[in-house]
Design a protein around this nucleic acid. Structure first.
Lengths: 340, 340
DNA sequence: TGAAATACCGGAAACGTTTGGTATATAGCA
DNA sequence: TGCTATATACCAAACGTTTCCGGTATTTCA
């Protein structure tokens, strides 16, 4: 009996035209309230929902946005997604998620696969293995796109970032105030503005306090857990730093392991802090001092900006939004353990 | 100049019909290799990709699947998603992700919003706040759907679960072998088969060793962090258990906090183990003994089953797939700290 | 050699919606 | 009264594919 319930069926049953039904469903001013109500009632009764493919084909709107990120199995990005979804739901949009696994080629492949009208807009946090902004120069002219956290600079769209330089400066001063003189730097995202800003903030704070930033006290992040561990252990045993500034969550585990294996006591022998959104940072042994980014808010803000673009409001003077991170002092830098 | 590049454009430029182009692109046997090559070459040169809306409208295939889960900011689900995506990519499918936040109403709302042809199939891990399988009884007749981890029973589709009963039994024996006599049970997912199986396994092992399972030693999970902490603290101080079996990752933090605040030493005063996919479990203070589910494999297997359904192969005798979890012994149950 | 099978290609309808143009009826106004 | 504006609704053409149906040319085989 029923068959699929579509607009034609509604029109037939109400004895009005297809066009009228469509306009009624979209609450057009051309349709009388009386007719609208008849349509809405029947639509509800028959449990009608418009076919997205047809609607999209005709109107060129998908009610879908894409999120392209390195990983989803990561506290920062998980929270950011949550922030994005909140806004998307609000607008009745669906969210497509793509993981690049830090591979720029994948990133570009995914993005390209979205240019045929599969989505209305894109939110992206770029891969760290390359810095290649030319691609995006052209891309932003083809589709609404907003960068968050890991951004390319000087591209004509919104970017949502955090105060990497300032918070790194502040965190470095915290290490110094805690008595560190020889601070190692675990360098992540070195090709991206975020990674560089973190290092600059560290550098500036060191210099401001008359401390040296030595090449030998730097470990660069590699996509190889064992190598990272090895490099950190080598650094620790050869140069005995009394402090560690980790610019990436991924360094935490190898750093703790290195200390354990080298029998270094945290924070007595060495103080540690790290960028991180790990909710269990407070339960590490000892609890870890972190620089925590407002991940949820970043996602939220990014999505809002994307919808500004989708609604054809041009980019205002709020093109580059910077949110504040937090320095949460815990036992790994000798701070009182407060379990917060 | 270019305009949008579509199938008509290709046909025009190659001086062949639209039908031929379409068939060539889909590698139909009706088209000669020579023609196919001409089409493929030009398509590549012009960077053509088919319009998904049009294709979907006509063919009733979206090349998209949906994943409906309680949270993405969770190690287990993050990994499961990764497993799902691997398979999806392989088939050229896109993945839509929905978070229910443990709310069955949302779960149903999302699911309903997908029934109008937005996706070809659904992978779902149901919310824990309710057990209401009637809805799904009807649903599986309308759209291909596969359950993973948190499943409803006796529904005519694939389910991917783990050996909750057996591994819980085994873990409980580990606690007992480590000297525990009075073991508290932190009860999660109580309304779902998974949660119940975990408890049954625990119960059976206790009984098999002549130990009592007391109501007073059970804390039920509530969606309120403070309440959970309070309940655990009350349990610990009023009944002094010497072991804790946590059936949910979410109990870990309050449990550790409770021990710290009550000055209970782990594992001397109390031994702890928990279901968890936390990668930092080994770095907790002390490192945490976990039951770890093969999250990636679960997602992987679930997606494979969904594609079996999509390819119209009926459900075989592998309808209920059960994967093995691992018990990883660490310091929180008195095991040698091995950092693995 | 002739009939049947095969290989290759095109015409045109269909998928379910949106939308610009048009038509009718009514109201407003001079 | 006649003329314009407004409210309401319909017609038909799109959107870009896929696919059924057919048609011709070529091959196969008895």
């Amino acid at each position: 009996m029923s068959g699929e319930v579509n607009i034609k069926r509604l029109a037939l049953e109400l004895n009005i035209s297809i066009a009228t039904v469509s306009k009624a469903l979209n609450d057009s001013h051309e349709i009388s309230l009386k007719t609208k109500n008849r349509v809405w009632d029947l639509a509800k009764a028959l449990n009608y929902t418009p076919n997205p493919a047809a609607s999209n084909l005709r109107s060129n709107k998908t009610k879908t946005i894409a999120v392209i990120i390195p990983f989803v199995a990561n506290n920062f990005f998980s929270l950011a997604i949550k922030g994005i979804e909140e806004v998307a739901r609000q607008y009745g949009y669906h969210v497509l998620i793509y993981q690049t696994h830090e591979d720029t080629e994948m990133e570009i492949a995914f993005t390209n696969s979205l240019l045929n009208g599969r989505v209305d807009g894109i939110l992206t946090s770029v891969s760290s293995n390359e810095y290649n902004s030319e691609y995006y120069q052209k891309l932003v002219k083809k589709i609404p796109l907003v960068f968050f956290d890991r951004v390319y600079e000087n591209i004509d769209t919104y970017t949502i970032t955090t105060d990497d330089y300032e918070i790194s400066y502040q965190a470095t001063e915290h290490l110094i105030a805690s008595g560190c003189q020889k601070i190692a730097y675990l360098y992540g995202l070195e090709k991206l503005p975020a990674g560089r800003a973190r290092f600059s903030g560290f550098e500036a704070a060191m210099r401001a306090h008359g401390l040296e930033v030595s090449e030998q006290l730097i470990v660069n992040y590699r996509d190889d857990e064992d190598l990272n561990l090895k490099n950190i252990k080598t650094l620790f045993s050869e140069h005995q730093p009394d402090g560690v500034f980790s610019s990436m969550e991924e360094f935490i585990i190898p750093t703790y392991v290195a200390c354990q294996e080298l029998k270094l006591n945290i924070p007595e022998d060495i103080k540690i802090l790290s960028f991180s959104n790990l909710s269990s940072a407070k339960l590490l042994n000892p609890s870890l001092t972190t620089i925590t980014q407002p991940a949820f808010e970043i996602g939220n803000e990014a999505a809002k900006c994307l919808f500004k673009l989708l609604n054809k409001r041009g980019i205002g003077d709020d093109q580059n939004i910077v949110l504040k991170s937090m320095l949460i002092k815990r036992a790994s830098t000798g701070h009182e353990a407060t379990l917060c």
